[in-house]
């Protein structure tokens, strides 16, 4: 059984009479696999990640999504998180006045509690954060600042990966984690992501650039266009897209 099974997913903006954004999307992801999703702007990549995470702005009109055989779409947002769904946001949100440290700890303990686990002790937590933050080049000062407040674009993306490393999710969805990163940061972040690759963890990496996939080498690459996966292949597909663009898929749109 696939860890994540998306079958014929149709979705639109909630309460909107307008067009569907996802128009019959299917994707199976097994433990240990890394799937890259590429596709032109507006093709529905972020929408897919939001729907998997449970954002309430969308209405699923058809199809199904299961996580380990359970109906994901029936679950509350925080329930999904506790089951191991993590979304690294394309645009991380600021939470002023809440220190990143406090936020991380509240999140970790909330998830643990939902899973019936004990809270992490203060020394264990501090050690965990110190190690992971150092690897990602995140300073203590950043950890004391409000969540994402005054962080540069690149710092925000690194902070997302730090959260991921601490929460140790089962399904990681990375939405354009490479955008806004300079070359060195790209390397650091990729290393952070690679360190989390494991036989029982799966990843969906949304990106526009082959560059990221040189660092995080995917098992599969999918092309998304107009709310559907229109082509799938191995890592060489990304190279082909880099060379030719999406023209081939956009002919019908023109």
């Amino acid at each position: 059984m696939a860890m994540l099974d998306i079958d014929n997913l149709h979705a639109k903006i909630d309460g909107d009479e307008g067009q569907e954004i996802l128009k019959g999307l299917s994707l199976k992801v097994n433990p240990g696999e890394v799937h890259a999703i590429m596709g032109p702007n507006g093709s529905g990549k972020s929408t897919l990640s939001y729907i998997l995470a449970g954002k309430e702005d969308y209405e699923v009109t058809d199809g199904s999504v299961t996580l380990d055989g359970e109906d994901l779409l029936e679950m509350e947002i925080d329930e999904r998180a506790a089951k191991g769904v993590f979304l690294a946001f394309q645009y991380p949100v600021e939470v002023p006045g809440v220190a990143t440290m406090t936020f991380l700890r509240s999140a970790l303990n909330a998830q643990r509690k939902k899973r019936g686990e004990a809270e992490i002790s203060t020394p264990d937590f501090l050690r965990l954060v110190r190690d992971k933050a150092a690897n990602l080049g995140i300073s203590q000062d950043m950890l004391r600042r409000g969540v994402n407040v005054g962080f540069s674009g690149g710092e925000k993306k690194r902070a997302e990966i730090l959260q991921m490393a601490i929460l140790e999710p089962k399904l990681c969805i990375l939405d354009e984690t490479d955008s806004g990163l300079d070359i060195d940061a790209l390397k650091v972040v990729s290393e952070g992501v690679n360190a989390l690759r494991s036989p029982d963890r799966a990843m969906i990496v949304i990106t526009h650039y082959q560059r990221l996939l040189n660092h995080i080498v995917p098992d599969f690459v999918h092309v998304m266009h107009k709310g559907r996966i229109v082509r799938s292949g191995g890592k060489e597909l990304a190279l082909e897209l880099e060379a030719n663009g999406y023209a081939e898929y956009q002919q019908d749109a023109a």
Binding site: E76, I77, D78, A107
Partner: peptide, 17 residues
């Protein structure tokens, strides 16, 4: 949404914010 995606329930998220 951001707080809840990290595992906080609506009341925990509100209290935190």
């Amino acid at each position: 949404f951001y707080c809840r995606q990290r595992g906080l329930d609506p009341e925990e998220a509100t209290a935190l914010i």
